[in-house]
Design a protein around this nucleic acid. Sequence first.
DNA 1: ACAGAAATGTAGCCTTGGCTTCATTTAGGG
DNA 2: CCCTAAATGAAGCCAAGGCTACATTTCTGT
Lengths: 164, 164
Amino acid sequence: MKLCRNGTFGPLARKISQPPPEEDKADILDAEAADRFNQARSARASALLEDYTELIADLLQEHGEARITDIARCLGVTHPTATKAVARLKREGLAVSRPYRGVFLTDEGAEMAERVRARHRLVVELLIAVGVPEEAAEMDAEGIEHYVSETTLAAFERYLKDKR
Amino acid sequence: MKLCRNGTFGPLARKISQPPPEEDKADILDAEAADRFNQARSARASALLEDYTELIADLLQEHGEARITDIARCLGVTHPTATKAVARLKREGLAVSRPYRGVFLTDEGAEMAERVRARHRLVVELLIAVGVPEEAAEMDAEGIEHYVSETTLAAFERYLKDKR
DNA sequence: ACAGAAATGTAGCCTTGGCTTCATTTAGGG
DNA sequence: CCCTAAATGAAGCCAAGGCTACATTTCTGT
Ligand SMILES: [Mn+2]
Ligand SMILES: [Mn+2]
Ligand SMILES: [Mn+2]
Ligand SMILES: [Mn+2]
């Protein structure tokens, strides 16, 4: 059963599991809406980490190193911002680094980067496939990608395969 | 010409406008990446306001009023969180309210709500059209919608019209 | 080798968007 | 009517993610 974000079951748990008492339909709709928003909030929280890991993986692959300055420049932020984000990556076990040296990904970080990169490509491809100009597809995908669930991703894959 | 977020033209303005000096291709790619990320950040900043205005419009239409408690319940947040967000809506000229009374939208707010609602519907429709299960489409659209540009939206519209 | 430039670190500020806790006001049932 | 429950407000805490300013370290060209 789905928990509310505060850990309780919320005021509607009974009504959801039991056969609907015919009324209170509105309450159920509200709960579903809350569910969607919670999902989106959760995705938003991971978005930054995803962008950083993907970018660091790209830099490592292309240049053999991922320096704070390069990360910051690619993301369009100042270097202290990048430094702080990398500190969070390290705290979450996604990256490692030593002072004045570049940033590297842990196995977990590299795995996330791979997933994120594949998803990013797929989103761009799908957008282009439905007629979005390439430039706009690249732009929008940078934000959209973080909110595409596994289910939706699978649907995108099927769509692209069928179309080809 | 596109400005960097700090108001300057960034270190690459010359290279972008002039015929490319054949090298430094990487720098231009980096600048484009930064552009994408800045765009996504900007969209993320508006996402909350968009969700609130859309929801408030829905509540007003369905129940004739939009109370803080209902807003909070639908969004899955506590009431002080909703109160603070509404304060921001008011500050930005999107909503009005008086103590212990419901929340209403300004003309500007109502207009935003209409745009956001139309975009939301279109995103859901497109996802379903490419084969995403309805439930997942509803879920993911709540996050995706905020990152879909006008260009992409127009492409979605064409796609749906052609398909029908 | 070393001086200046570039990169990195550190500190501290701001806003946003969550939360809890407690005070106050409004609304309704007996 | 009034008394309690519900709704709202207000204060204050926290983390994330931006920024500037300044200190320190590393790199590089002469
Ligand atoms: Mn992204
Ligand atoms: Mn990406
Ligand atoms: Mn939304
Ligand atoms: Mn929406």
